[in-house]
Design a binder for these strands. Structure first.
Lengths: 132, 132
DNA sequence: CGACATGGTCTCAGATAGAGACCAAATCAG
DNA sequence: CTGATTTGGTCTCTATCTGAGACCATGTCG
């Protein structure tokens, strides 16, 4: 059984749960980290702990608003740890928790695929653009 | 070098490209398939080709609008094949392309992680809800 | 004295997603 | 013959979400 078949079989079992968010991991979890910024921030934190402003610089086009919001969700989900040191001005450091570090394994798999097949995707887009 | 370190190192190289969409696979690709519906639809198609209305039934709370839009993007990116048979009423069948099938490998990895660690995430959320 | 850095929050406008009406043509039930 | 149903969408309207940028308090540096 290859991955496609395995995935198809997996999908069928979810139907029984009717995708109930509290029991279906895919809906309950990938809905959250499957947004524009979560994976990118997890990548940024994989290299080591970073302060709020460092993350803002590392991921240039994220707004402070979304940076705060995304980090709060990742913290609530137990993937990221937030540490405040009450200096003045305040210093807040974000880092991956052990759970967050375990997530880097499948995340790296996804990114490897993206880098290996990106050229094919670009080609498909261009073929389609040319046809239109 | 474990996955976390590898991911961190990878992130640093992206900085050189300044996340230029045309060259950075992560921005150019995961921005598209990393949304609410793309991965779910790819899972649904992993079990075999499906017609438009079948997909709408399999993924209950997707609107027709988003179903159309998401399938068009997946088609443009070369992950999904769309086949129209000009019967009346029309019959349109969607299936994974070879590229789409290759994506099921990392996708399955992500889902395995989600199912294995979902309990921990829920626990983290509950701990946080209790603290508030 | 005045500018700057920190880690945010707040407001407002613009983009995006969802709900549901609508469509055309054929087919099927009554 | 009539009227409902199926198909694969599109269109409009509204609700939600996102991004830009102002603002804040406080201490430090020039």
């Amino acid at each position: 059984m290859d991955a496609t078949e395995a995935l198809g079989a997996r999908f069928e079992t979810w139907q029984q749960f009717e995708f109930d968010e509290s029991r279906c991991a895919v809906r309950g979890l990938l809905d959250r980290i499957g947004d524009r910024w979560s994976m990118l921030l997890l990548c940024a934190l994989a290299a080591g702990p970073r302060r709020f402003s460092a993350l803002a610089r590392l991921v240039p086009d994220i707004s402070k608003r979304m940076l705060t919001q995304t980090l709060r969700i990742l913290e609530a989900d137990g993937l990221v740890h937030r540490e405040v040191r009450p200096t003045v001005p305040p210093s807040v450091t974000y880092s991956l928790t052990p759970l967050g570090r375990s997530f880097t394994v499948p995340l790296l798999g996804l990114i490897d695929w993206a880098e290996a097949h990106f050229a094919q995707v670009v080609e498909a887009r261009e073929r389609r653009a040319a046809a239109a």
